[in-house]
């Protein structure tokens, strides 16, 4: 990097609050997997990461996924490993659950449901947002 770029990096390097928003169902596209790969990379770099599941992303949290039946690595298994990296809370949009006739009790992991009132402020509280 050029000297001026290095100086900029040193000025602004800090632990950022990064939110990953997962909106895709598992297996139909590879974006669900991409989000988890970024989550693991972020955890390895000790960033302050949060995960939000909304829209079709809430389907990722259903238990008893038999991904091997379609030749995929299990999204469920990766999600279950996240607490090892201090990613132990899955924020979920309540409206997305309602639209899909899902209840919190049907989901695996430490799920925290965000109401319509809580959701915008929760997202706004982060430094950076990456959508998947």
């Amino acid at each position: 990097m050029a000297n001026d770029q290095i100086q900029t990096s040193q000025r602004s390097s800090e632990r950022k609050k990064i939110l990953l928003i997962c909106r895709q169902a598992p297996y139909g596209s590879t974006l669900a997997r991409a989000a988890l790969d970024v989550a693991l990379a972020g955890a390895a770099f000790e960033q302050d990461l949060s995960l939000l599941f909304m829209d079709d992303g809430v389907w990722q949290l259903l238990p008893q996924q038999r991904a091997g039946a379609i030749g995929h690595k299990s999204i469920e298994a990766t999600l279950q490993s996240l607490p090892l990296y201090d990613l132990d809370t899955f924020h979920v949009e309540g409206e997305s659950l309602q639209q899909r006739s899902l209840e919190t009790g049907q989901l695996s992991g430490n799920v925290v449901v965000l109401t319509q009132e809580e959701l915008p402020a929760f997202i706004d509280s982060h430094d950076q947002v990456i959508g998947f």
Binding site: S12, E14, R15, Q47
Partner: peptide, 20 residues
């Protein structure tokens, strides 16, 4: 490079913009 470079760049950047 690996995803670590995305995270590293995010950490030192003032803004992160995604196009998809």
């Amino acid at each position: 490079s690996g995803l670590g470079q995305l995270i590293d760049a995010s950490a030192v950047s003032d803004r992160l913009v995604t196009f998809g």
